[in-house]
Amino acid sequence: MSDTAQLASDAGSRDPAVGLRAVRALRILVDRLEALQVENAREQGWSWQEIAYCLEVTRQAVHKKYAGGRGLLRREK
């Protein structure tokens, strides 16, 4: 895994299995970061509207994705 030569060849690889796996890994990372940042924003008192504006999505979209359950993220308005 730490074989740098192998990794360098992966980076330039046109093998879809390698490329698609990278895309998937990136998407998971983005989801994880988004959840963390949305939670942080809510903790700092941001409204769903403000968060949605920054993410360039609708308020409904961000609310639907993160406001489920009764946890810390669930706050009125």
Partner: peptide
């Protein structure tokens, strides 16, 4: 999180983890 796959497109997961953890605490990612 697939560190190996991210590295194949030039993304260093450990560097990201380090910064995120500096802001949000150990294990936050």
């Amino acid at each position: 999180l697939d560190a190996e796959a991210l590295e194949s497109i030039g993304i260093d997961l450990s560097a990201i983890r380090e910064r995120v953890e500096a802001a949000f605490g150990p294990g936050s990612l």
